[in-house]
Design a protein around this nucleic acid. Structure first.
Lengths: 215, 215
DNA sequence: TCATAATATGACTGGTGTTCATTTAATGAC
DNA sequence: GTCATTAAATGAACACCAGTCATATTATGA
């Protein structure tokens, strides 16, 4: 028995498994973007991925898990966008401004992806263990990235220091998300109020930033 | 045939219908608070209300509609609380501070009610007509009340005027809601970050307010 | 070639929101 | 009180769907 051979096979299988997994996420994402996650059944996703329904459950614990996987991929996308924009030469506040703006830009360019994030059903969060599936506290998440920038800004004096960095990051992230939720999922409401979505996004961001900067 | 008699009967029926409706909402609310809306079936609600399942549909268009009705009642409660706190003698900014605080207090005293609001599934908002079921734009809604206070504050100079009152109200409401969502539905996440919920609420409120006040 | 393990299948289960033909109750004219 | 008519209530039936699992297919390496 050739051990190294077996190892390579195991690894190929691992790779293939990961590929299938991604293919399923692709299929699900596509349907999701077209019809909204609520209106897509596991059967449909399986068909789109040329698999049987049962097979999906070999790759994802549940429908919810599949949804989270989509969201995690989007979070990775956003993280990369943010990281590209980051300039270590600049002060914390300035970076915060820039990153915030590019997040908003992202939301304009990829509304579907933002929708995917925003549709994570909060009610499911009640079960603690589910949080682990959603990588918002991983080192490479946007939220953690924001935290680091705020910490820097507090050190260089450009951001107020009387709120802890984590709390401030969570607040800012949450604020921005809430407005994104409004303009992506509740646009009819926003329009009914006679409000322009882009303006709303920008105003909210300016407002949040004002609350955060050093005086 | 006595017309006035008939009229009074019609009206009694109307009243009774409203009573039944409220009784159903009561039953649903009770179950909802105990088990979470997602874990309550129409069958259970019917049983709790001593009715058959089909009867519920004579009073509510759908399960969703029933949920909205619960939420609308909560919104009314909040509106009343806010109105009680309002002092026309005081400046807009001061009222805003006070009302915000009492909203936060309310959320501490009636976490279940807040949960009910926060669990309105945003994804359903995509269908425009559904918005009508949710009375967040009615004259007696908290959001509209906030708008009026902001308008006053802009007139008396205590609140910055470079953002329209409606937009500012929507932003503030949305900000506050997002944090409430965090501490009511995503508490595990908040705790995992080592953050105290009450502190988070207060900090966020102070932060939002700072962004809103005149300089 | 063949035994074993890994992967895939789809019929089946249990549960649910919604509908609707049927039953029950209330009404008011006589 | 009786009875035709209208309103309200019922729950069996339907359609849909997430998740399971016994069975079938495929891959592996000896």
């Amino acid at each position: 028995m050739n051990t190294s051979h077996i190892m390579s096979v195991t690894e190929r299988k691992k790779r293939e498994k990961q590929l299938r997994r991604n293919a399923i996420i692709d299929a699900a994402e596509q349907l999701f973007f077209k019809q909204g996650f609520d209106n897509v059944s596991m059967d449909q996703i399986a068909r789109e991925a040329d698999l049987a329904k049962g097979t999906l459950y070999l790759y994802f614990k549940s429908r919810e898990d599949l949804h989270y996987s989509i969201v995690n991929r989007v979070l990775e996308m956003i993280y990369k966008v943010l990281k590209d924009q980051y300039d270590p030469e600049k002060k914390g506040a300035e970076n915060l401004l820039k990153l915030g703006k590019s997040y908003i830009d992202f939301s304009q360019n990829y509304p579907n992806h933002i929708r995917a994030i925003m549709m994570v059903d909060s009610s499911k969060f009640e079960k603690l263990d589910k949080n682990q599936s959603l990588k918002i506290l991983e080192p490479d998440s946007p939220l953690v990235f924001f935290t680091e920038i705020i910490k820097k800004g507090q050190l260089d004096g450009s951001i107020r220091s009387d709120i802890r960095d984590r709390e401030m990051a969570l607040i800012l992230w949450s604020h921005l998300s809430s407005i994104l939720e409004l303009v992506t999922l509740r646009l009819p409401l926003v329009n009914a109020m006679g409000i322009n979505e882009k303006e709303l996004l920008e105003k909210q961001f300016e407002l949040s930033l004002r609350g955060v900067l050093s005086k």
